[in-house]
Nucleic acid binder design. Structure first.
Lengths: 108, 108
DNA sequence: TTACGCAGTTACTAAAAGGTAACTACTTTA
DNA sequence: TAAAGTAGTTACCTTTTAGTAACTGCGTAA
């Protein structure tokens, strides 16, 4: 009877549909490898706590890599995994469409 | 200095990234016009309260239409607007990719 | 006559999520 | 010697959110 359900989609959406999450992914997608502080500045308004939570969750789900270098001060970088990069196209489409709907005067 | 921010994308994501929201949109996209009860059964596990909240919000944002017919019992139908239908492609892409990642044994 | 279905709404409660601020360790600056 | 900066982490508290259950009014089915 269930003719149009999609459990995988539900699972994926649970992983990426939290507040900030897709915007973080889009930021990583357009900027490539980024350090924590850099991301924090780009994703304007996010608190370090929430940013850490999102990054940890995305790492656990295999969507981003985390590179830790124990220099002083420590450098931690984040990057989309191959899977993460597959989100690039739908994110780009959403961004394009959002720019058409709401204008892109603040973009780029 | 802000070289890769996208306010329109942030705005759009705020509208569609709540729990259930994109799954509701995907369900409407694949089923066409749907009544409240039908949607409720497809979006398994959602409570009527939350479904109402999401539908109202999506209507306010111009993403879905709400048709009310005061028959007895009343018939209320929902459908994607032209804007809503623009979300179809990214949603389809996400669904396809989710099926590849997590398997589609429970789908269709 | 009683129950059920539609399409919600409302009140109440429980859980999760978010922000703020303080804290880590270490180096550089004053 | 002490303060400040980097890159986060943690504790605490408040706010938001979600779920449950009961209720609406009207008609049909049992």
């Amino acid at each position: 009877m269930k003719d149009s359900e999609c459990a995988p989609l539900e699972k994926l959406l649970n992983q990426i549909s939290g507040q900030w999450t897709m915007y973080i992914l889009w930021t990583l997608d357009t900027n490539g490898v980024m350090r924590f502080g850099e991301l924090r500045r780009k994703v304007d308004g996010i608190s370090p706590k929430v940013l850490t939570q999102r990054l940890r969750m995305l790492e656990e789900n295999g969507i981003i890599y985390r590179y830790y270098e124990s220099t002083i001060p420590p450098q931690v970088s984040y990057e989309l995994t191959e899977r993460g990069k597959e989100l690039s196209k739908p994110l780009y489409d959403l961004c394009e469409l959002a720019s058409r709907w709401y204008g892109d005067e603040t973009k780029m």
